[in-house]
């Protein structure tokens, strides 16, 4: 599903002493089945932006288009349900939303709300549990008995079970250990490929942007200040630093190498790209 923001503005608590700008004239397009990263430091408007993707917030002015659904200030709540179903949201620390008595019922909660029959919902729940790598024997346990990492998978399955076409991930790996992080990112990549999902990832991990994203949006002070491929975003390291953002580890290392006389056609963003660009600049093994 393609997504378009057309001059979207959002104002928090308008006409009160607490009035604050949430989004200021944001326009961009996300192609269907692409992987888009949203970066920017805390309070830059990232969360406000993603809450527009499924109508949790409605623009004060401007239009958000998701496939053929148009979200404007006038959209009534009744019409939001299909948008909620088609755009799945995994919030930060999603395990905090678990509530039901068993893992199975918690995962089936979304599908039941969206009007699937009990039988369909259970079958979708089992499929989603399988997709996120939860063993069957956990399905009848209470979600509160599981480990932190397992609880997070239950919560993600609870979003996937409603069969969204767009998956919005707000720092989905926060608080996990390195192996957990790597496994979870690999899982999202696989889900995207298997289910032809459009993925939107809010993250502070520039290495994940380099490894997974097709395009990135940079937010600052409620504005979209740059959009492009990761290579375009990180092409100017001075600009990146001025935005208080980091470079991917490999790009940072490559920067150091440049001061030592190495040359790169474009700034390498991953260890693999860096090694490839070092061919010809370093001796071969066994020579």
């Amino acid at each position: 599903m393609a997504i378009t923001f057309d001059h979207v503005n959002y104002m928090y608590q308008p006409n009160s002493p607490f009035e604050a700008v949430g989004l200021s004239d944001v326009s961009f397009t996300v192609p269907s089945e692409s992987f888009t990263a949203i970066i920017g430091h805390t309070g830059s408007g990232k969360s406000t932006l993603v809450q527009h993707l499924n109508g949790l917030l409605k623009p004060t002015s401007g239009t958000v288009t998701v496939d053929d659904f148009q979200l404007t200030a006038k959209t009534t709540n009744k019409h939001l349900k299909s948008l909620h179903q088609h755009v799945g949201m995994v919030f930060q620390f999603p395990e905090n939303q678990l509530f039901d008595q068993t893992v199975e019922r918690d995962i089936a909660f979304g599908p039941l709300n969206f009007g699937f029959t009990n039988e369909e919902a259970m079958s979708l729940a089992h499929q989603a549990a399988h997709d996120v790598g939860l063993p069957d024997e956990l399905l009848n346990r209470s979600p509160f008995e599981l480990s932190g990492g397992q609880m997070r998978r239950v919560a993600i399955a609870g979003v996937l079970a409603s069969q969204p076409r767009v998956l919005v991930l707000d720092e989905p790996t926060a608080g996990l250990d390195p192996r957990g992080r790597a496994e979870m990112m690999a899982m999202f990549a696989k889900l995207k490929a298997d289910q032809q999902l459009t993925v939107i990832l809010v993250t502070h991990q520039m290495d994940d942007v380099a490894d997974y994203a097709d395009q990135a949006l940079v937010m600052a002070h409620s504005n979209l200040i740059k959009a492009g491929t990761p290579a375009e975003i990180f092409a100017n390291p001075e600009w990146v630093k001025a935005q208080q953002l980091a470079l991917p580890t490999a790009a940072n290392f490559a920067q150091h190498l440049v001061t030592r006389g190495f040359e790169f056609d474009s700034l390498p963003l991953t260890a693999e790209q860096l090694a490839i660009q070092l061919r010809g600049q370093l001796p071969k093994e066994g020579r």
Binding site: P178, R179, P283
Partner: peptide, 22 residues
């Protein structure tokens, strides 16, 4: 133990993969 590899190690592995001296 589920820890990350240091970047230098990851790069060394990639260098070897490209047939370069690591």
């Amino acid at each position: 133990t589920g820890l990350d590899l240091p970047f230098s190690t990851k790069l060394s592995q990639q260098l070897a993969k490209q047939g370069l001296i690591a």
